[in-house]
Amino acid sequence: MGEHLVVIVGLAFGTFAMRFGGYLLGARIPSSGPWARALQALPGCLIAALLAVILAQAGPAEWGAAVLSLAAALLSRSLPLTMLAGVSAVWLLRGLI
């Protein structure tokens, strides 16, 4: 429970600080240029890194399920359908491998 409280309070303060900080910095951050490009690219890079860490520590069943999830994501563009495809694929592949 203590851990949850730290995460909730930490994320709440940190996120609000970013939202308000953005307003304060609005005049100073250029809307183009290297800093803006890096900030725009950060979310995608973080998700790519996160997936790499998860998959590096997993095995063939998860790798296969990741490929199938990617196909489901590109075809459906739907979060629940992609998650359903991924979970079913990993469940099936773990049974087979």
């Binding site: 730290v6 940190g14 900030l39």
Partner: peptide, 21 residues
């Protein structure tokens, strides 16, 4: 908890750009 907060906040940096606009 601390690393969880850092990882979550890193993802939120794009909001800074939105409110800056």
């Amino acid at each position: 908890a601390v690393l969880a907060v850092i990882a979550g906040l890193a993802l939120n940096l794009r909001i800074l750009l939105m409110t800056a606009s």
